[in-house]
Structure formats: structure tokens, C-alpha cells
Design a protein around this nucleic acid. Structure first.
Length: 477
RNA sequence: CGGGGUGUAGCGCAGUUGGCCAGCGCGCUGCGUUUGGGACGCAGAAGUCGGCGGUUCAAGUCCGCCCACCCCGACCA
């Protein structure tokens, strides 16, 4: 086996994914089982994701804050469904300072309880509302089986927590943030997603309603890539978040929460990656452009490097990496940066300098097709155009792939056939938790979300009942 | 927790019916030649063979116990 080659995506998707994460130096396994080390290259990608999301949060009036990682166990038990949902996956601290604690502390799996506790102190009047806070944090969930980025014991995310005076406002907030996520996914990550409501079975523990953005990976499995929850007054009642309204009436607040995690990096990898490695969308890529200098003899080196520096300076508006590593052949560097998913590569050698041109190689179009000679003059504008085009092309390709793997199914047989290995099934669906579980057992497919674009009425593919709702079923990560 | 598997150099692995110096590829270090699609030569460094115990003249190899990790299920952003 040639160790330099990645496993083929088509032949072994899991192995391909795993090797890709490790060898592109996004992340590594940690000494503790199920944990992950995010390496600098992976973290740089995450920081770009953070930046893009933070901009959107600011635009919608949210501010950042930080809450404790350790939560008294009793907080977790206040909301009945919440504790039932999370109890099996909690890490618990029983000792501190060498002594057994009177009350164990839970390492936060999510922060509704601690934030709810604080909101009950902060909120007295309708004038205090809405409270629109986000926190960037790490959380711990003791999962049985883990996978780099997709499901690790500890993961990084942002969690927004808001409190509102009315149900309508909270519902609006839940839906707004779902759309913020969908917009981010499409326009920054070039990941086309379907934003829709989750079924009762799949909703967040303690929520009245859960919405998610669902993305289709390269093996046609679905990945829940972000969630937004309408919590109703459940947490307000459990944590006593009350306020006096304009009529001097005591009311429970209406709350929401929403989050996107490092799992999204997995979504980017599995949406765009190919047999050569990662393909990163220009807007989020740690390096948008890599320049590989090519020279045969030492006397050529200075001349080439000087040109390279000139071009790099002209591309100051972009995130540019000059690969000046010594002793590596250009071929090695090409493969290395392709593995790491850099959207655009520039090659500059003696031949190019003579012609005052350079080679541009697009990561989204493999092989010779993606290469072209361009004049060095006006490099900035050319690069800007091509990066835009790559960004658009990635979204277009991913959308085409997704749409060609969604099938409208009318019968259970048809649906089983589709979710077995063809893609997602879109069906008329009369909501029924028991039926949903049966389908999961028989096909391994779950209800990903209700179709937000469903119109009219039809016959449920499973129960035969009349319904006005459509749903997506798929195998999922 | 149920089923299956693997532990030998940083990584990936080979090691026969027990046998004397524990090997190969990649990577790493040094020197030289190279550099337009994963360079080559020479010289090197690097191992409690997962742990403990047993059988034996002799254990990476056989036996027992333990530990760790991986894959498939149940759980999940």
C-alpha cells in the first residue's frame, strides 16, 4: 500500500474521513479516549467559522458572555425532561481540593441550567427583556462511541440563550437563528442545508420545539449541523425566570437556545472533500492562496523568491501562505496543500518569470482542467474573481449533489430502497412517534426534519393517513 | 453492556513447528546530489515486543489472569 495516498472516498468513506482529518492536520486523537486535540490548522478553520457566526450574532443584537463549566448537580435535575435526556452522558466531579464534595458538580453538557439560574436573578421587569446572550464554550458529553469532530466527549461550540417577554418573540427568535445558521452554512461554508423542525422523538431534551439545519454528506448520510430550540416556559418555570409585565402581572419568560459546534468542520470535510483531500470554501479556509516557488538551482532561487514576495504583497487582501520550505520538491508541496484543501495555488518558476505569468491551480477542479496561466499583473483582481468563483462552484456542486440524491417516495418499499444506499427520502408524513421508531428499527433511517417547503395535502407513505406535512428520512451520523 | 478484533521504533506492519543479533516500509538526524506533480545515494538515531505470572536450557512466539485500544449494536450536536 502506498501510504502517501489517501484511502478512496468511494471505497471506504469512514477511513477516508478519518485519515483526512489526521493527515490534513486538523485534529488528532487525545490521550483520553474519545477526546480530540484540535491542531492549529483545524483551529484556524474554527476561528474563521467563529468570526463569521459572531458577525451574524452581532447583527441580530446578541452579545457574548461566559458561564461556568461546573454546574451543581441539583441544577441539572430541575427540568424533568432535560435531566432525563442528559443524565446518561454526564461527567460528574465528586472531589475538590482533595475532599469529597457535599454536592457533586456536573461538567456542563450544555448550559441551559446554569444560564437559567442566572437569568432568574437578572430578570425582574419586562424592561429587562429580551436578554440575548451567546457564549463560546467547550462542553462534555460522555458518548459511547466517538468520531473526530462529529462526536467527541468534549467539543467546542457556541450556545445562544435568550429570554423574551412573549411567546411570539421567542418563536420568532428560534426561527431567526435557524435562518442565520442556514445562511451561514450556505454562504460561508458552501454547505447547502435544509432548515426544518425536528419530530417529537428527535427534539432537544426539555424543548417545546427543535429546529435543525440538515446537510447531506458525500456518502448521502445526513448530518445535523446546527440546532435552534424553542424552550417555551419550561426552563423559566424550572428556574423561576419571572418578570412583571406592563400591567404589573407576574409572568414567566419565554426562552430559546441554539448552537453550532466543531461538528460543523466535519460537515465541511464531508461535503466538499475528495480523493485528493480537503476542499475548503475560500471564505473559511485558513489559507485562501498558497504560493509554491519553483527553482532548479540556487542561483535561480533569489530571483524566484523575490517575484514570489512581490506577488504575495500584491495579494495582501487575502490569506496567503508562501511555501518556502527547503528541500521539498514542488510536487510534494502541491500534494500537501491539496490534502489541506487550500482553494487556490499559485506556482511561480523561472519559465513564468520570463513570460511574466504564473500558474493558477484551482482546488475545486482537479488535475489539468483546474490549471491556467495568468499574467502576474493584476494578480489581485484575478485571484478575487477566482476565489469567488470557487466559492460559488462549491455551493453549486454540493447543491446539485444533494438534490440529485433526494427522492420523493410514495410507498414504504420505495422509501426503504432509497434510504438503504441511495440518499434521502422525502415523503408525506403524518406525525407518529411509534411509527417513526419502527421505521428507525427497520431501516436505520431517522426523521431528519419536516420539509419547510411542503404545500398542499397528501397521503402518509407509512400510515396511509391524510396529512399536510412532508418529512425527510435518512441515515444519519 | 452484547458480538468481533488488535496490542512489536513516531506511524503502518512482518516475525514460520519456541532458538542465539527483533526486522521491513514510511517518517526522523547528518552529508552530498536534486527540485515544473508525492526525489535519490550514503551514513545514522530510535524498541520495558501492552502488563503481571507460569511452562522451558531457551518465550515476541506456548498457557493463565489483567489492562488498553479499535470495529459493529444501544446513546447523541
Amino acid at each position: 500500500m502506498d501510504e502517501k495516498k489517501l484511502p478512496s472516498r468511494a471505497e471506504n468513506y469512514s477511513e477516508w474521513y478519518n485519515q483526512l482529518v489526521l493527515r490534513a492536520e486538523l485534529a488528532d486523537y487525545a490521550p483520553v479516549r474519545g477526546c480530540m486535540v484540535v491542531r492549529p490548522y483545524g483551529w484556524a478553520l474554527w476561528e474563521n467559522i467563529q468570526k463569521a457566526l459572531d458577525e451574524r450574532f452581532k447583527a441580530t443584537g446578541h452579545v457574548n458572555a461566559a458561564f461556568p463549566m461546573l454546574i451543581p448537580q441539583s441544577f441539572m435535575t430541575k427540568e424533568k425532561e432535560h435531566v432525563e435526556g442528559f443524565a446518561p452522558e454526564l461527567a460528574v466531579v465528586t472531589h475538590g481540593g482533595g475532599e469529597k464534595l457535599e454536592e457533586p458538580l456536573v461538567v456542563r453538557p450544555t448550559s441551559e441550567t446554569i444560564i437559567g439560574t442566572m437569568y432568574s436573578k437578572w430578570i425582574q421587569s419586562y424592561r429587562d427583556l429580551p436578554v440575548l446572550i451567546n457564549q463560546w464554550a467547550n462542553v462534555v458529553r460522555w458518548e459511547m462511541r466517538t468520531r473526530l469532530f462529529l462526536r467527541t466527549l468534549e467539543f467546542y461550540w457556541q450556545e445562544g440563550h435568550t429570554a423574551h417577554a412573549t411567546k411570539e418573540e421567542a418563536v420568532e427568535e428560534t426561527e431567526r437563528m435557524l435562518q442565520v445558521y442556514a445562511d451561514f452554512a450556505r454562504n460561508e461554508a458552501a454547505v447547502p442545508v435544509i432548515p426544518g423542525r425536528k419530530s417529537e422523538n428527535e427534539k432537544f431534551a426539555g424543548a417545546k420545539a427543535t429546529y435543525s439545519i440538515e446537510a447531506m454528506m458525500g456518502d448521502t448520510k445526513a448530518l445535523q449541523s446546527g440546532t435552534s430550540h424553542f424552550l417555551g416556559q419550561n426552563f423559566a418555570e424550572a428556574f423561576d425566570i419571572k418578570f412583571l409585565d406592563e400591567n404589573n402581572q407576574l409572568q414567566y419568560a419565554w426562552t430559546t437556545s441554539w448552537g453550532i459546534s466543531t461538528r460543523f468542520i466535519g460537515a465541511i470535510i464531508m461535503t466538499h472533500g475528495d480523493d485528493q483531500g480537503l476542499v475548503l470554501p475560500p471564505k473559511l479556509a485558513p489559507f485562501q492562496v498558497v504560493i509554491v516557488p519553483i527553482y532548479r538551482k540556487d542561483e535561480e532561487k533569489e530571483r524566484v523568491m523575490q517575484k514570489v514576495r512581490e506577488v504575495a504583497a500584491e495579494l495582501g487582501a487575502f490569506r496567503v501562505k508562501v511555501d518556502d520550505r527547503e528541500g521539498l520538491t514542488p510536487g510534494f508541496k502541491f500534494n500537501d496543500w491539496e490534502l489541506k484543501g487550500v482553494p487556490l495555488r499559485i506556482e511561480i518558476g523561472p519559465k513564468d518569470i520570463e513570460k511574466s505569468s504564473m500558474v493558477l491551480s484551482r482546488r475545486d477542479i482537479p488535475g489539468k482542467e483546474g490549471k491556467r496561466f495568468v499574467p502576474m499583473a493584476g494578480a489581485g483582481q484575478t485571484v478575487a474573481q477566482i476565489l469567488d468563483d470557487i466559492q460559488a462552484n462549491l455551493l453549486r456542486k454540493a447543491t446539485e449533489f444533494r438534490d440529485s440524491h433526494i427522492f420523493d417516495c410514495e410507498s414504504y418499499e420505495q422509501m426503504q430502497d432509497v434510504v438503504a444506499d441511495k440518499g434521502w427520502a422525502r415523503v408525506w408524513w403524518s406525525p407518529d412517534s411509534a411509527n417513526e421508531l419502527k421505521i428507525k428499527e427497520e431501516t436505520k433511517a431517522t426523521l431528519r426534519c419536516f420539509d419547510p417547503e411542503a404545500e398542499g395535502e397528501g397521503i402518509c407513505f407509512y400510515s396511509g393517513r391524510k396529512t399536510n406535512q412532508k418529512a425527510y428520512f435518512a441515515r444519519a451520523y
